[in-house]
Design a protein around this nucleic acid. Structure first.
Lengths: 201, 201
DNA sequence: ATACTGAATATTTTGTTGACAATTCACAAT
DNA sequence: ATTGTGAATTGTCAACAAAATATTCAGTAT
């Protein structure tokens, strides 16, 4: 151990910076937050922050990554939900996805902005996330196939197709076009129709 | 008839203005085109243009409306295409829609900008267009139902559902995300899956 | 009266500049 | 060696001024 008491590990400091940045970003936005403020919140100089993150942008990306991870976590919970059919799970998945996107758009506009801004610069982050969502979808489809509920030749392809067909419900872009309940109604219709094509008969 | 030779009717002048504006807008963009230039192209003063259009914005809207009308026209041609099943027609419709959007995005970026800009201010224009597309879709679905090819309870609802599920292929927003042939492939998959849910079995 | 224009006015866009903020760096403290 | 800082540098942005443009209007021509 090092001599000084209370010494924080680099990992802890990194985490502290992220927390401080998130607090500021989500309240005032990425643009209106300065490195000096973030540093001040952590009782250090702005220069020192650069020992942990190469740029402000990078802090934003790390936070966006975290947020998307939480979203994925919440959707994984749908995969665990016991006692429902694969069809019901698919519907629940899509509705949960929409709900999350809508919730964030309505109640955490700054966080939404952050993610959109980071996605604009580093699309690979968002691509990886979408890929993750598709993988979760694959689990549902595979389950349905295993129980003979679904009649699917290629689960990977089917997951991509379902992602494409439900794009409208997980893309913030459209959120201003319709009201929430119109979206939910539409989402149900779309999933119903997709299920007519997926279930074995 | 009025005394002077070559007198142009107000309708002709209106049309001339629209043509001149379109030429400028599609080459240089809405913002970089001045009313004076449009007027000059028609050998009249800028002030006189206002006898035909209340504002530059209105000229843009009229042109956007025309463009969307042409798009609808092109899609109507798909409805006329003889000797194909309703399923084939549905696929052709979606592919034609995507093709048009993609074509415009790639080869007439200014026109695309124009439409997006006008849509931002007067969403009713774009809403009416989408409604029109849905109506065309209804014709296809109705045909399919009439011939017992499709099993559809509510044609209007089904059309809305199919529009939602194919949103990705008629919204320019996504065009930068994937390559053209990836889109076409995805579109085919989505339509295939939708058809599995639509056709009577 | 109707069609039109030039000049006046109102808006928007563009260009510039100073302040602020991101990032780097040479050096200090432990 | 590691952790850190203040100060210097570079880059960005918002506010203001200037210029360009949209829009209006009073008035001319037919």
């Amino acid at each position: 151990m090092s001599g000084a008491r209370n010494a924080k590990t680099p990992e802890q400091l990194r985490e502290e910076i992220l927390q401080a940045a998130f607090a500021r970003f989500s309240q005032y936005g990425f643009g209106k937050t300065t490195m000096a403020e973030i540093a001040g919140d952590c009782q250090m100089s702005a220069a020192n922050v650069y020992r942990f993150f190469a740029s402000k942008q990078d802090i934003g990306v790390a936070l966006a990554f975290q947020c998307l991870g939480e979203k994925e976590q919440r959707l994984r919970a749908v995969l665990q939900r016991p006692g429902i059919t694969a069809s019901e799970r698919l519907l629940a998945f899509v509705l949960e996805l929409f709900d999350y996107v809508h919730e964030q758009f309505a109640h955490q506009p700054r966080v939404n902005e952050l993610i959109e801004a980071m996605a604009a610069e580093r699309m690979e982050v968002i691509k990886a996330h979408i890929d993750q969502l598709r993988t979760l979808l694959m689990v549902i489809l595979q389950q349905g196939r295993d129980t003979d509920e679904f009649d699917i030749a290629d689960v990977t392809a089917a997951a991509e197709t379902v992602m494409a067909a439900t794009k409208m419900f997980h893309t913030p872009y459209f959120l201003t076009w319709y009201k929430k309940d119109e979206f939910v109604h539409l989402a149900r219709s779309v999933v119903d129709l997709l299920l007519r094509g997926l279930v074995r008969r």
